[in-house]
Amino acid sequence: MGEQILIVDDNEDIISFLKPALEIEGYIVDYALNGKEALSKMKEKFDVVLLDVGLPDIDGFTVCEKIKQINSCPIIFLTAKGLEQERVKGFLVGGVDYIVKPFSLKELLLRLKVHIKKQVQSDQKHVRKFIKLGEVEIDILAKSIKINDQLIDFTKKEYEIIELLSIHPGQVFSKEQIFELIWEDTSDSDINTITEHIRRIRSKISANTSFDNCYIKTVWGVGYKWGD
């Protein structure tokens, strides 16, 4: 499943342009045309908010402050103003980025990926020390995995895949998401390496467990998840 994005902008042309473009990239997109509507939608869990500064009812800076009280997701400001004091204010109230209209869709997509990756890495730093499922125990601080109290040798990338999935149990990650979050953009590998890494992980787990339990489960046509 893709990340959930909320677009907050009173310009319906912006909405009609951005929403399908982001959905093509695999994101789940909702939108609000004013600040009050945006705040009412925050009972849902969004991964990123694209927030216009010049809203008709509540200014975007105030909306950002209110969102930050209930959701730690990255907020990227979209605005027609490029003034330095406006950018500074946006960062002070909790925004992580500031994109001036008109903007390039390619640039926006790249920035989205960067901030989503940073958020995932930040989440990883705050997870509990141990994650245990069945016979598998993951030590987040030591970066090691035991099965039935025996230390099992996983490669760095294999471990990183297991850690990514296990700290988000039940959440489905596509091969594209796993590749972007774990492999560097300059890597010589391609996305097909994910399938081989998953196969090796499963083989090592199966060889060391006393019963057949598929810890990394395939959601056909979507991706992989940890546990049920």
Rank of each mutant, 00 (worst) to 15 (best):
residue 100 V to F: 08
residue 110 L to V: 15
residue 67 I to Y: 04
residue 116 I to F: 04
residue 106 K to W: 13
residue 118 K to W: 08
residue 13 D to G: 11
residue 44 E to N: 13
residue 64 C to E: 12
residue 50 L to S: 00
residue 92 L to N: 15
residue 86 E to D: 12
residue 91 F to V: 06
residue 39 L to F: 08
residue 68 K to A: 04
residue 62 T to I: 11
residue 64 C to K: 06
residue 45 K to P: 03
residue 29 V to W: 04
residue 48 V to I: 09
residue 57 D to K: 06
residue 43 K to V: 14
residue 16 S to C: 13
residue 94 G to A: 07
residue 44 E to R: 11
residue 65 E to I: 08
residue 55 L to P: 05
residue 76 I to Y: 02
residue 92 L to V: 14
residue 113 K to P: 12
residue 13 D to H: 13
residue 111 R to M: 00
residue 48 V to Q: 00
residue 111 R to L: 01
residue 52 D to R: 01
residue 89 K to F: 13
residue 52 D to H: 00
residue 39 L to K: 09
residue 94 G to D: 09
residue 55 L to C: 05
residue 113 K to H: 13
residue 111 R to F: 01
residue 104 S to V: 08
residue 59 D to C: 04
residue 48 V to M: 01
residue 72 S to Y: 12
residue 91 F to T: 14
residue 17 F to Q: 15
residue 22 L to F: 10
residue 68 K to H: 00
residue 36 K to G: 09
residue 83 L to R: 12
residue 116 I to C: 05
residue 76 I to V: 04
residue 113 K to I: 06
residue 92 L to G: 05
residue 59 D to V: 06
residue 46 F to E: 04
residue 44 E to V: 11
residue 96 V to S: 07
residue 73 C to R: 02
residue 55 L to F: 03
residue 83 L to V: 12
residue 91 F to W: 14
residue 118 K to T: 09
residue 59 D to H: 09
residue 98 Y to I: 06
residue 51 L to N: 02
residue 86 E to L: 08
residue 74 P to H: 10
residue 66 K to D: 09
residue 22 L to K: 01
residue 15 I to K: 05
residue 54 G to S: 08
residue 75 I to R: 08
residue 78 L to S: 03
residue 105 L to P: 06
residue 82 G to A: 02
residue 95 G to R: 10
residue 70 I to T: 10
residue 45 K to N: 11
residue 68 K to V: 07
residue 51 L to R: 05
residue 34 N to H: 11
residue 32 A to W: 06
residue 76 I to H: 05
residue 110 L to E: 15
residue 48 V to W: 00
residue 22 L to C: 06
residue 89 K to P: 02
residue 43 K to W: 14
residue 90 G to H: 10
residue 93 V to Y: 03
residue 102 P to K: 05
residue 51 L to I: 01
residue 25 E to G: 08
residue 61 F to G: 06
